[in-house]
Amino acid sequence: MKELINSNDDYANYAVAAAPETGRHGENMRANMPSVIIEAGFHTSASDAVALQDPVFRTASMKGVEKGYRLYREGKDCIPLKAAPIDGIRLPQGGSEQVDVTFEGYPQYPIELVTTNVGCPPGWTCTDGRVRIEAPDAKPSRITLRCENAGSAPILWDTRVVDADGVKSPAVRHVVQCIRTARDPVAPSLTPGWGAAATAG
């Protein structure tokens, strides 16, 4: 529930217990099977009462309950969605390379690998990218990084995994170092106006 609720920007700071509390409740003590009492907010709290009337909050809460039941049934731990670090790469003008995006956790498919530019040299066009993966075994989790430019400069990207329930992994920062080729008559510079481009996706 914490993962699902906090993935929504409006409830990113909503307090959700990180671990269950042990109590002497009859519903648990007298149960003949593993049991848990699930609570999300209280009507006696003004802010909780507002959240409980919001269908977005209610949907995220119940998706969290469903995921908890599903992972328990499958014998899996509750591991938050997290992408592994992505190594920086060097590419020549016009070059491209596929980069693996590995992650831990149990996202709900289909997922998207979302790459956002966070550092584009002046005069360059840096295009964000999305890669959709329908199922765990559908295809490798990869993004394609390119250098379509006329000079040398680093380009900074943030990549995250976003699942069908809206769960977002923390962004992973990585760099593509574009390298001017010998045939490029333009000397390395960050002067605007090259008409260069770098794309991801």
Score class of each variant (00 low, 15 high):
Pro92Leu: 12
Lys63Trp: 11
Val167Phe: 00
Gly41Ala: 00
Thr181Lys: 02
Trp194His: 11
Ala150Gln: 10
Gly201Glu: 02
Val56Gln: 11
Thr59Pro: 03
Ala171Phe: 05
Glu39Phe: 04
Leu190Pro: 05
Val186Ile: 13
Gly23Val: 14
Pro140Lys: 04
Leu145Asn: 10
Met1Ala: 13
Met62Ile: 12
Ala49Leu: 14
Asp184Cys: 05
Met33Trp: 09
Ile37Arg: 10
Glu134Thr: 06
Asn8Trp: 07
Cys78Glu: 13
Ala40Lys: 05
Thr181Trp: 02
Pro121His: 05
Gly166Pro: 06
Ser45Met: 11
Gly129Arg: 00
Cys126Lys: 04
Asn117His: 08
Ser141Thr: 11
Thr144His: 04
Asn117Gly: 09
His174Glu: 04
Cys78Phe: 12
Arg24Thr: 12
Lys63Ala: 11
Ser189Cys: 03
His174Asp: 02
Tyr109Gln: 03
Pro140Asn: 04
Thr181Phe: 06
Ile5Thr: 01
Lys2Tyr: 10
Ala138Trp: 00
Arg30Tyr: 15
Ile179Val: 10
Tyr72Arg: 15
Ile133Leu: 06
Ile155Tyr: 09
Ser7Ala: 07
Thr102Phe: 03
Val99Ala: 03
Val114His: 08
Glu148Gly: 11
Thr191Ser: 00
Val56Glu: 09
Ser7Glu: 04
Arg73Cys: 12
Lys76Phe: 08
His43Gly: 15
Ser96Val: 11
Glu66Met: 15
Val56Lys: 12
Gly119Phe: 00
Leu156Glu: 13
Asn32His: 07
Ala153Leu: 06
Arg160Glu: 08
Arg142Ile: 07
Thr44Cys: 13
Met33Tyr: 09
Arg180Thr: 12
Arg183Phe: 14
Pro170Ile: 03
Arg58Thr: 13
Val65Cys: 04
Val186Gln: 12
Asp54Ile: 03
Glu74Phe: 07
Asn6Glu: 11
Met29Asp: 14
Cys78Val: 15
Glu27Asn: 15
His25Thr: 09
Gly95Ile: 03
Thr102His: 08
Ala12Thr: 04
Asp9Lys: 10
Asp48Phe: 04
Glu39Leu: 05
Gly193Asp: 05
Pro122Trp: 07
Gly64Gln: 00
Asp128Gly: 06
Pro55Tyr: 03
Glu66Phe: 14
Asn8Ile: 07
Pro80Asn: 05
Cys126Thr: 02
Lys63Met: 13
Glu104Met: 10
Ala12Ser: 11
His43Met: 14
Ala83Gly: 04
Ala187Asn: 10
Leu81Glu: 02
Ala196Gly: 15
Leu71Cys: 00
Leu113Tyr: 04
Ser45Gly: 09
Glu39Gly: 06
Thr22Gln: 15
Asp137Arg: 08
Trp124Gln: 15
Ser61Ile: 15
Ala164Cys: 02
Gly64Ala: 01
Gly119Lys: 00
Trp124Phe: 11
Thr125Ala: 11
Thr115Lys: 04
Pro192Ser: 02
Ile86Lys: 06
Gln53Glu: 12
Val176Thr: 07
Thr44Val: 12
Gly193Ile: 00
